[in-house]
Design a protein around this nucleic acid. Sequence first.
DNA 1: CCCATATCGTATGATAAGCATACAATCGGC
DNA 2: GCCGATTGTATGCTTATCATACGATATGGG
Lengths: 162, 162
Amino acid sequence: MADLSLPIAPTLPLDLAGLQNLIGFQLRMAQVAMHREFAAAMAEVALTEKQYAALHLIHANPGASQADIAVILGTDRATMMALVDRLDQRELVERRRSNNDRRRQELHLTAAGKALLANAERILAEHEAQFASMFSERELKALMAALARFHGQDEIMPTNLR
Amino acid sequence: MADLSLPIAPTLPLDLAGLQNLIGFQLRMAQVAMHREFAAAMAEVALTEKQYAALHLIHANPGASQADIAVILGTDRATMMALVDRLDQRELVERRRSNNDRRRQELHLTAAGKALLANAERILAEHEAQFASMFSERELKALMAALARFHGQDEIMPTNLR
DNA sequence: CCCATATCGTATGATAAGCATACAATCGGC
DNA sequence: GCCGATTGTATGCTTATCATACGATATGGG
């Protein structure tokens, strides 16, 4: 007989009001969940997703330019600059002026960068396995195919490149 | 006989080196793609995903507190403060001290907030339909179920119900 | 009734990221 | 050699996330 006096329910379980049926909402919530796990797991190497991806790509493609990496990661030159700056300040990557095209800065990993990346790869494998284990092989395959469909993998286009 | 002189492939076809097989990578790229579309579509109402979700939730749950919304959106009080501040400055939402619990600020939409939200809902419907159309009903159902599993919150409980 | 504890809003500061814009150097085609 | 495109760079603005701290308030135990 306590709260009958309350005219309006103070705070019941909130009505999601269909939010959970939005692709964008589910996509974002999934990404947030995975981001948090990633950040926690990567704490000892202090890498964000984009930073990891950049290191990974530079390692596999020594001499790639910032613009190259930016296109693949779906971002723009200005944002990529800031990202590479941070990796550069930590002395994980090196910028070397290209001889063929003196506009370009060829990116290379330093020894420290390679060592850190190796650590990160190991951590990432566990991180990925943890999420992969939530699905059957069939489900996972379908999920990956579905996600890939959101972005035309063939043509990734940063906004301010027209 | 043009580029035979180049010792190293100068640019484009970069080796993704397995990046595309990472759940986290595909999830992020999908989210980035959808985010860009969302931002472009919502330009006329100038709402981010989180801002839209907050308005949507406040509309469906008048009097909900910042903490309630924060829990559902998977963020914290401090971040939510900043978000609500922006909505408040634009006079889309109102904070009212609760009579039952004077710590709480009950959130309500202003008339302008309701009008803007109505516009946003219309835009969002098109936006969602555009992405939904990339999948069969069966595929979409599987995708949504898979995404929901990442943040396994079947029941999201506001903090004040613990 | 008083007190310990928890909760909510709030403030502050740091970091990451995204986007727009502008500019200089350079490259490539004509 | 000129013109348009590309690359890196710089600057500024906005959103978001996270950590931390503090005051006001609520709640429950003693």
